[in-house]
Amino acid sequence: MIEIKNITKQFGKLKALDTVSANFTEGQAISLIGPNGSGKTTLIKCLLGMVIPDAGTIHFKGSDVTTSCDYRRDMGYMPQIGRYPDNMRISQIFDMMIDLRKNYTTQLDEELINAFDLRKQFDKPMRTLSGGTIQKVSACLAFLFDPSVLILDEPTASLDPVASEVLKNKVLKEKNKGKLILMTSHILSDLEEMTTDIVYLQDGKLQFFKSVEALKAATNEQRLAKAIASVMSKGIQVQMNGMNGNGHTPPSPKEFSRTVNRREMTIKI
């Protein structure tokens, strides 16, 4: 459904993405993981056309995303930090988005709005909302137009446990409908229940892209968090080689130990 070929993006001296290639298909729930600044959000923004890659191509359902913006009709995006016009109320934001996108969708998916009970707060201006409520708004907007691709950047980061559970259930439901879900998160236990595949990015390079089963099998671990930790910490060059489906060279031992130290901190939660 989405074919990424050799995407490269440089911000000044920093290589945010370095010849990343991957194919994503329907029914997959892909987790992008990697340390801060490893290029996860940049990759997502490239898919949405918000960041223009220096080199490489992205095809959505066979057509190049740079030729037309129409492919975004099929996408729902929940940003890491949702930024909305300060003086608009929640209801106005929803009305505006529906007004702008209604030509492309027949059925609105308001399930999440109801589940979050967001209507109670519809009259509040965006600038008065807490980080969590803004995330709820972002989540509702992402699912509202029943898109076939959902892109969720740190979806559960500032949600309370109840809301987080609601969102996870919704993601699972949409995944089972055969949608493509692409998300980033640092909370590996959250990903456990939702993910089918893992993409690991480090310093802008795609280190591996494997299904959860393959990852668990390769590491002999039952839990995803442990499997990832195991891949990171044991420094298993052999396994890394085995896991490298996309022809990327595994990191050098020195690079790898750096990975391990950084990763362990996140994984121990």
Binding site: M50, C69, D70, Y71, R72, R83, Y84, P85, D86, R101
Partner: peptide, 16 residues
């Protein structure tokens, strides 16, 4: 001041 609005619109099917 419209930067947030512009960011919001860019993720929608709207040409730049």
């Amino acid at each position: 001041n419209s930067y947030q609005f512009i960011e919001l619109m860019l993720a929608q099917p709207i040409e730049r």
